[in-house]
Computed example of a mutant assay.
Amino acid sequence: MDQELAPFILFTEHHVRPETPHLKLELALGSKLTEDSGCHVLATIHRAGDSHEEPCIFRWGRHDATAAFLLFHHTPDGLRKIEIASEPPSAAVQAPLVVDGWGISVRELAPGGRVRSMITLPKRYRTELVSGEKYELVWPGGEIAIWDWGTEKQHAGRELGVKSPKICLPAARATLEFNKFGQATEGRGSPPPISASERIPGAPIMSVMLECNKNVPQAGVADVKISVVYEAPAGSPAITFHSLPFQSWYGPREGYRLYRRRANAWESIEDDTTGFMIVDDPDVSIHVSQHEDFASLQPGQTWTSSDRLQGQGLGALPDDMNVGDVFRYVFKGVELDWWDWGDSSDHAETIVKLPCFIKGRVVDPKDNGGRPKLKVPASNSIEFTIV
Rank of each mutant, 00 (worst) to 15 (best):
C356L: 06
T151W: 08
S344A: 15
E128V: 00
G78S: 13
V279Y: 06
P18E: 10
A238H: 09
W139Y: 12
N264M: 03
H155S: 05
Y329H: 06
H46C: 09
N368Y: 12
P21A: 11
Q312H: 06
V41R: 00
D148F: 14
S305L: 05
G38H: 03
D271H: 01
R59E: 15
S227K: 05
L169M: 07
I57A: 00
V106R: 02
S289I: 06
V130C: 09
T66L: 07
E19K: 15
M118N: 04
A174V: 09
G187S: 08
L176W: 08
R124V: 09
G220M: 02
D2L: 08
A174P: 02
E335P: 02
R257V: 01
V228A: 00
D148I: 11
R173F: 13
F58K: 05
D346E: 12
P237H: 12
W338A: 03
T120H: 04
S306H: 06
A203L: 10
L27Y: 13
F331R: 10
E198I: 08
V330C: 10
E4F: 06
G112D: 07
D325Y: 03
T385F: 01
R114H: 14
S207F: 01
H287Y: 11
P252W: 05
L25D: 06
L374E: 01
G189Q: 04
W249E: 06
V363G: 15
I382E: 04
G313A: 01
R260A: 06
R260W: 02
Q3R: 14
F58P: 01
R80H: 15
R328L: 13
L129Y: 11
A295F: 08
D320Y: 05
T273C: 02
M118L: 11
G49Y: 11
H155M: 13
W338P: 02
K180V: 12
V98N: 03
S344K: 14
N213W: 06
I167D: 02
P372C: 14
A68P: 00
G315R: 06
A203M: 12
H52S: 11
I194G: 02
L210Y: 11
F294C: 10
I239T: 08
I239P: 05
Y250C: 01
V228H: 00
L70E: 14
F241A: 07
L374V: 10
D367Y: 09
L354P: 05
V323D: 13
S227F: 08
G324P: 02
R126Y: 04
Q301G: 04
E53N: 05
T66S: 05
D307A: 11
G313P: 00
L210H: 10
K123I: 13
G157W: 15
P217T: 03
G315L: 04
G49C: 08
D271K: 00
V224C: 01
H22L: 12
W303E: 00
P170D: 11
A171Q: 07
V334E: 03
F181M: 14
K366W: 14
A265T: 08
L25H: 07
G132M: 12
G141I: 11
Q247E: 13
R126M: 02
G313S: 01
P165V: 07
G342R: 10
V352I: 15
G161S: 15
K163L: 11
G300W: 06
I286F: 07
